[in-house]
Design a protein around this nucleic acid. Structure first.
Length: 365
DNA sequence: CAACCGTGGGC
DNA sequence: TGCCCAAGGTT
């Protein structure tokens, strides 16, 4: 078990590897909605949705998205709130904002045709090295590497690469490897096959080596290291944040909602008013002060919170104490604060954490 | 480069 | 429960 910086391809039969991998893919590939045609727009949308997201989760979102925005032009013409609503619950919401921005750019700058050169594609917002390679190879058949987590895991085993795949610098090593290995006859299937193998066979835990079509090419299998490769360092613990939120009703049964800032966590999503709790003041007081100072809302809150919600993100944890309350003065709607009928809540895009709040609130009555 | 940016499922 | 994981990108 030794380290290798540049990968040694001595004794590796590249052509046989390509053939075994691709013919397996042709036999076993899943019938996925975005594999039905090679429309670059559909490939693009699917690749954005699939970032850090499971196939099973993406499928219904992709289908709804394509019904609503069947073409690149349709998406370019849509309003941002409408687009964000279709992404509600998928997570990593900057993906869809960047996608929307980039699609509008393609519409204006490239006449609605997704560009075909690596430089132009990579410049599109939200399109990084992986997605650029995926679009170019899958939609346009160009021999560009598309290195994602699957590819790094699979190749670290096949080629016995001991670099820490959690480190950003590692991706370059695998891109170089793919440039050596990729089939120039069928770059699309080669890249997809590598990912499909990672998803179905060469899985993170307990890989199914006995079913693997390229087992005979796999150095980790030969050396008995499939359970320890790839090397991947651990992440850090999340920070915990204590919040106080309120579901506020006016005299006519309308609900106060707030639009989050355009950058950062849950950007442009709607929420019930909430603020970070202070260590010294009671939560109710912090909340009342925040409402008064920030929005000019004079609220009357119930003494005790009616539910407590824990929501875990990748890098932080929210613990939200939720109060019920009424507002005394009338609230004028602005871009970031609205007072809407209860039945219109569902028209706005809420993060899952605040969907939980709404569910608990409705359960009260 | 490290930190930030969601969510749901598996064990 | 807690941690890892899943077709990453931006700052």
């Amino acid at each position: 078990m030794e380290k290798n910086l540049p990968i040694d391809f001595t004794g590796f039969d590249i052509h046989a590897f390509q053939k075994d991998l691709i013919s397996w893919f042709e036999r076993e590939m899943r019938d996925l909605p975005w594999r039905r045609d090679s429309d670059p727009y559909k490939i693009w949308v699917s690749e954005i949705m699939l970032q850090q997201t499971r196939v099973d989760t993406v499928i219904p979102y992709f289908q709804r998205f394509m019904e609503k925005f069947p073409t690149l032009e349709a998406l370019a013409d849509a309003d941002e709130d409408e687009v964000l609503k279709e992404w509600e619950g998928l997570g990593y919401y900057s993906r869809v904002r960047n996608l929307h921005t980039a699609v509008k750019e393609v519409q204006e700058k490239y006449g609605g045709t997704v560009p075909k050169t690596p430089k132009e594609v990579a410049k599109l917002k939200g399109v990084g090295p992986y997605t650029a390679g995926a679009i170019l190879s899958i939609a346009y058949g160009q021999p560009e590497p598309a290195v994602d987590g699957n590819v790094m895991r699979v190749l670290s085993r096949i080629l016995s690469v001991w670099e820490d795949i959690a480190k950003p610098s590692s991706r370059k090593i695998f891109e170089d490897a793919v440039r050596k290995l990729i089939s120039h006859e069928n770059p699309s299937f080669f890249n997809q096959a590598l990912m499909e193998l990672g998803a179905l066979v060469c899985t993170s835990k307990s890989p199914s080596c006995l079913l693997c079509p390229v087992r005979d090419h796999c150095r980790a299998f030969a050396e008995g290291t499939t359970e320890v490769l790839p090397v991947k360092s651990k992440g850090k613990k999340q920070k915990q944040i204590q919040l106080a939120a309120a579901v506020l009703e006016d005299g006519d049964g309308r609900i106060v909602i707030h639009k989050r800032p355009g950058k950062g966590l849950l950007a442009n999503m709607w929420e019930f008013v909430q603020t970070e709790e202070s260590s010294f003041l009671p939560a109710r007081q912090v909340l009342k002060d925040y409402l008064s100072e920030e929005f000019g809302i004079e609220a009357e809150l119930e003494t005790d919170y009616f539910t407590e919600i824990r929501h875990v993100f990748t890098h932080l944890i929210w613990d939200i104490r939720v109060y019920r309350g009424k507002i005394k003065n009338r609230v004028e709607g602005t871009d970031e604060l609205k007072c809407v009928p209860a039945w219109e809540i569902e028209k706005y895009a809420f993060p899952v954490s605040h969907q939980k709040i709404w569910k608990a609130y409705r359960a009260l009555k």
